[in-house]
Amino acid sequence: MNWFKRIKVGITTSTKEKKETPEGLWYKCPSCKAITPTDEHVQNKYICPKCEYHEKIGSAEYFSIIFDDNQFKEINANLVSGDPLNFSDTKKYTDRLKATIEKTHLHDAIRTAHGKVNGNDLMVACMDFNFIGGSMGSGVGEKIARAIDYCIENKIPLMIISKSGGARMMEAAFSLMQMAKTSAKLTLLSEAKIPYISLLTDPTTGGVTASYAMLGDLNIAEPGALIGFAGPRVVKETIGKDLPKGFQTSEFVLEHGFLDYIVNRKELKSKLTKTLEMFKN
């Protein structure tokens, strides 16, 4: 299988570099198993051309998809979670953090950047799933809080792209309190009448769902994303039977009234532009 090379998602290589990937590299869709040339897959915003499966991508990819000419100003890029509990499970948390930072070239599971979307200002806080499962700790909470301050100060709308397994256990109650912190902070954004769009992507679960991801003025999602509070395995264990088909998908969550719309990644930028202009004009 070594001639199939799955795209490493969320790495900080720019789209331009990816486009230059030599021929002969292929993307295999985990959903329908269709094989697509990598450059074509990238062109297609990492969506399988055959079945529309949206591959998990990271902040670098989202920024390049959303921001005009991939131009943006990142803020608080070097902020890192501390380790106030001196936490250790099978590994020391500080070692885990260090290894993850080296591996991903990211500092935490979220990046915050100000750029333009077809000329409209937008602050985008985008989570990276490959940073400890996109888990929310002090770093994520603080970066969101500072992004909100920035939005209030500069009067620009906020979009948070969620992609998370939930809380970061190694930060225990500090992680839990980031739910309170981000939600409390969002009341200030709301008071300033600044729009907040929450984009839920695959997967958004746990404490992220139970805080900022569900608190958008608009809650929107990519198709086919897993969205829920409890993970499907836990729900299955609780009810003691198989889950119905489509349970906890974006479509399911839309149907139950918790999303405003589902947007294909190919239409994300245009729909976002339209949405921002509705708020503006």
């Binding site: 739910m179 769902t209 805080s211 569900m214 829920g228 509070f229 836990v234 009810i239 139950h256 918790f258």
Partner: peptide, 21 residues
């Protein structure tokens, strides 16, 4: 919070988030 099927259908995450806010 109860991790059941109906709890998910009725938006357990949203309900908690709303309360925090």
């Amino acid at each position: 919070a109860y991790p059941g099927l109906e709890a998910e259908e009725r938006g357990q995450g949203e309900a908690i988030a709303r309360n925090l806010y």
